[in-house]
């Protein structure tokens, strides 16, 4: 067992867990944050996407010991019921979420994309989200949600 201490959604947490515990399981089972989903367990679907030190990662492929001292953001750290994050608001309005199981990962991937490309082209969106599989939408509503978020951010400047 190892004591793993890191910053989770703005608060410091310490967990005693086997060091090879997947970050996904650390979040879901040890810390009871179930917004991060498991779709494939092999880094292919992106449902378990979280941000580690601002970078998008598949939490099913991260051994927990490697997040020692890191900053982790999950979907729970993004918005509040009373105040959705703009990405969440745009996903809601544009129909970017259908069954919702890929949505937390997709929203974090969008967050990462917009950090790197505040005004992404369609090709940048297509590439930036290509590690997050969605079986419901055919991605078109998601593209619109991302574009809308970027537009709002631009207008809000």
């Amino acid at each position: 067992m190892s004591i793993i201490t890191f910053t989770l959604n703005g608060s410091q947490v310490s967990v005693d867990a086997p060091p090879m515990t997947r970050l996904l399981d650390l979040l879901r089972e040890h810390l009871h944050l179930t917004g991060t989903k498991e779709g494939c367990g092999e880094g292919e679907c992106g449902s378990c996407s979280v941000l580690v030190d601002g970078e998008l990662v598949n939490s099913c492929l991260v051994p927990s010991l490697q997040i020692q001292g890191a900053t982790v953001t999950t979907i729970e750290g993004l918005g509040e019921q009373t105040h959705l994050h703009p990405i969440q608001q745009c996903f809601l309005e544009k129909g970017g979420a259908q069954c919702g199981i890929c949505t937390p990962g997709m929203i974090l991937a969008t967050h990462h994309l917009l950090e790197k490309h505040p005004a992404p082209t369609l090709d940048e969106i297509r590439e930036g989200l290509s590690g997050n599989l969605c079986r419901c939408t055919g991605y078109m509503r998601i593209f619109e949600a991302v574009q809308q978020t970027a537009k709002l951010a631009e207008a809000g400047k």
Partner: peptide, 9 residues
């Protein structure tokens, strides 16, 4: 190589 998330790691 893989996805953006895989390229980050």
């Amino acid at each position: 190589t893989g996805s953006i998330a895989n390229q980050n790691r």
